[in-house]
């Protein structure tokens, strides 16, 4: 995932995965969350989600919540992940505010 950490711009997938993990979820529940919240606009394949989870775990933005059940591993957003998601939210708010001012929308 090509997230621009310095500029704060995240890919849509990264942002949604972080948001989905404000409460613990396993892989399938993350896919369902994203599909539901976007009304089916963004459907994440299991392979793509696996790559995203691996990458975010390495960055320390999400972590395993409970690995006692190997068949149903749940993940949760970390403090750093929350910080990144909230930073992205501020960036998007600023963007929509500027766009609204210009377009009058």
């Amino acid at each position: 995932m090509r997230d621009n950490v310095r500029g704060g711009a995240l890919t849509e997938v990264t942002f949604f995965v972080l948001l989905s993990l404000y409460e613990p979820r396993h892989g399938y529940a993350i896919m369902q969350f994203i599909e539901e919240k976007t009304n089916g606009r963004l459907v994440l394949g299991a392979g793509s989600l696996y790559g995203a989870i691996e990458s975010l775990c390495k960055k320390g933005w999400i972590a395993l919540y409970d690995d006692s059940d190997v068949r149903r591993r749940e993940y949760i957003v970390t403090a750093l992940g929350r910080q990144i998601a909230e930073q992205e939210l501020r960036r998007l708010r600023e963007l929509t505010q500027i766009a609204g001012e210009i377009t009058g929308g």
Binding site: M1, R2, T11, V13, V43, L44, G45, A46, G47, S48, G51
Partner: peptide, 16 residues
């Protein structure tokens, strides 16, 4: 009823 794709995002498709 939905297509079955494991790789859906362009970067992931490219990586595959």
């Amino acid at each position: 009823g939905k297509p079955f794709e494991l790789h859906t995002t362009p970067p992931d498709k490219i990586a595959f």
